[in-house]
Design a protein around this nucleic acid. Sequence first.
DNA 1: CGAGCCCTTAAGCAGTTCTTAAGGTTCGCG
DNA 2: CGCGAACCTTAAGAACTGCTTAAGGGCTCG
Lengths: 223, 223
Amino acid sequence: MMIGAGVRAALRQDGYVVDWVQDGAAAEAALAAEPAYALVLLDLGLPKKDGLTVLENLRRRGKRIPVLIITARDAVADRVRGLDLGADDYLVKPFELDELSARIRALLRRHAGRAQPVVEFGGFRVDPSSRKVTYLGREVSVSGREFSLLSALLERPGRPLSRAQLEERLYGWGEEVASNSVEVHVHNLRRKLGERAIRTVRGAGYVIDEAAAEACRSAASSS
Amino acid sequence: MMIGAGVRAALRQDGYVVDWVQDGAAAEAALAAEPAYALVLLDLGLPKKDGLTVLENLRRRGKRIPVLIITARDAVADRVRGLDLGADDYLVKPFELDELSARIRALLRRHAGRAQPVVEFGGFRVDPSSRKVTYLGREVSVSGREFSLLSALLERPGRPLSRAQLEERLYGWGEEVASNSVEVHVHNLRRKLGERAIRTVRGAGYVIDEAAAEACRSAASSS
DNA sequence: CGAGCCCTTAAGCAGTTCTTAAGGTTCGCG
DNA sequence: CGCGAACCTTAAGAACTGCTTAAGGGCTCG
């Protein structure tokens, strides 16, 4: 389905990690295996397996995860049933990607209680909407993976994230990585940002904490 | 209704002129008398007169004015019926004012098409009514698609738009493109406008931002 | 009907980014 | 001190993204 690919691309553009499955069975498998999804996008136009069943099972198991249904304009019955089964919102095809992402943001915000604005900490300034990073006052161009990595670390400053956690964050299910790519990205980031921007906590992972902020201050005073 | 007052105040905050009526009859009267409304906010919780009837009559008279429905969470049937009668979006109570204004903006933007004011930014002057573009003082003739592309980028200067978003913008639903036509249009635009007019943000899309404005200034000083 | 414009495709190129793998280095501990 | 584990560095090639060019179809207008 072309729609699926476009939506997926757009969501990635917005910085989400997207797992895309194409029928109800696969959806249930994924939901069972990976309990950390933030949101489910359910296209009721899915072939051959009933998306509503997926939703029903999900709720029956007590999952409160936000679900956004996508239906065709004429599928009124499905829409009603979906809302009654506990969907949080729905969108009618055709829709605009802007609106989709607005609603997704709204759902996530409503559910998590927090918005996702510009992050600032320890000399960093990271803007998810424009994908820009400035460190110690100057703009640094980072690649996609590097950006995700930075965002993850900045989400909870001071809290180290292990390689495993970072991998989970950077790669969706089904595109596992079997190498030291996280290390490499950290290395490349350090080359761009300076040695002290990301500190490594032996045995625990990587962290951005006060040390980075300190580096910031000393750099400011020396200049 | 307390909600009404709060909403009205918030919308005024956003710069809109708000007429607030409290039942269906008054709504119809207002809509008949003042044909220039940009958008209708319809609270289906209205007492004594059916808001859906207002909507139905509105559409029957051929009015395409955007309608945003507000319903209670449990009023599923009304919601569905509203969309089928031609409402453009709905919002469930309780909602956040931020979201309301976001959706209003989206609706207005989608509906705008024309009657938009001239956009000026970074050396550009784009007039939607006459479809004319001037850049750095000289008039540039652009084709239809190119014009749409430019307008989209200028709508939010500084904010990159991905290829997917631009495609969404340029092509309605049902006329998907499966190619790099956006890239080609950007290329052609750059040839007409100069390399720096549209900047590409790798991994995020295309932007018109301060860099274009800078190009403007330097060009002005050198000439 | 033919010329010209606009648009979409498609294919190839270039530059960047990502992953992988193979050593090298540092650290903590016995 | 010496060993293993964790971490770093480097480099090569695969994968991907964006740029360019050009062919071809549709459309309008003379």
